[in-house]
């Protein structure tokens, strides 16, 4: 039973991880919380859902959702962030909040506010491994997450674009003086974060076999908690914190009741903020690099 819950928690945690990574890519290099990422995720979910519900293959659904969310992410960058880049950090954050409300309204108008259900026969196979039952859907969710996290890790650690991202995250002024283009790199960060959010949206609609226009707020806030718990200065904190929160949530529902589920997740976040403000993987302040 416990083992079964761990697997379920991992699946949920995988989605949290992706959304948290999406938040922290933008947060890490711009120090701006792009609140609309929650809604990009929701939008990705609907786009994927629309395609799966027509009986088209999952990879196509993923591709459309990722591209759709990526395009909207770039629009958000151009309209909600770029003109405000020299304003105090709270200003672009508020404009992304505005964008998130718009997105929610658009989706509600297109698809309605009632939850949409996936046909029940989809991905309903499962494997019995000892006492644990793993659904095909769970394997898809975890597998896709691993592939995407691997792709992001490769990009950030091994490519010129990734080095530019890290350089700007650490010290934007020095990076600029080394010839790193901040606007190109910002574009890239928004685009990748959109791709990840879109993919995560499809995965969550598979996980719940349903989607509502309000899922972005729910999961988005949890992903922010995951990012904080993992450490906002360390992109990889989400890899640890995502599964942790997913498992904590599932175990709480199983053994404590679903009414206290959010209490546990956000309680953990507050606890971390009090005891280890830099997050689980966040380094010492001096590691972050000085500003010019």
């Amino acid at each position: 039973m416990l083992l079964q819950q761990l697997v379920n928690g991992l699946t949920l945690g995988a989605v949290y991880t992706l959304v948290a990574l999406s938040f922290s890519l933008v947060m890490g290099i711009l120090s701006v919380l792009n609140i609309a990422i929650g809604e990009l995720f929701m939008l990705g979910g609907y786009l994927g859902f629309a395609i799966i519900a027509r009986g088209l293959p999952l990879p196509l659904a993923m591709a459309v959702a990722m591209l759709g969310a990526c395009v909207v992410a770039v629009i958000i960058q151009k309209i909600a962030y770029e003109p405000l880049r020299d304003a105090p950090l709270i200003t672009p954050m508020l404009s992304t909040l505005g964008f998130s409300i718009i997105l929610q309204n658009v989706v509600t108008n297109v698809w309605g506010s009632d939850p949409l259900q996936l046909p029940s026969e989809m991905f309903d196979g499962d494997f019995q491994i000892g006492p644990v039952r793993i659904g095909v859907m769970q394997i898809v969710v975890i597998g896709v997450t691993i592939i995407l996290v691997g792709a992001v890790a490769y990009l950030v650690q091994r490519t010129p674009a990734g080095r530019a991202l890290r350089a700007i995250a650490e010290n934007r002024d020095v990076a600029r003086l080394l010839g790193v283009s901040v606007s190109k790199t910002t574009f890239l960060a928004f685009a990748i974060s959109g791709l990840l959010a879109g993919a995560a949206g499809v995965l969550i609609s598979l996980h719940y076999a349903a989607i509502t226009p309000y899922i972005g707020v729910d999961i988005g806030l949890k992903a922010i908690a995951v990012m904080v718990i993992g450490g906002t200065t360390r992109v990889w904190g989400a890899l640890l914190a995502g599964p942790l929160i997913g498992i904590a949530e599932v175990l709480t529902i199983a053994y404590g009741g679903s009414q206290i589920r959010d209490l546990v997740v956000y309680g953990l976040m507050i606890l971390i903020l009090l005891l280890r403000p830099q997050g689980l993987l966040g380094g010492a302040r001096s590691d972050v690099g000085q500003r010019v």
Partner: peptide, 8 residues
């Protein structure tokens, strides 16, 4: 003041 990147 030397300005190197901590993660690189």
């Amino acid at each position: 003041n030397i300005r190197l990147f901590a993660s690189m």
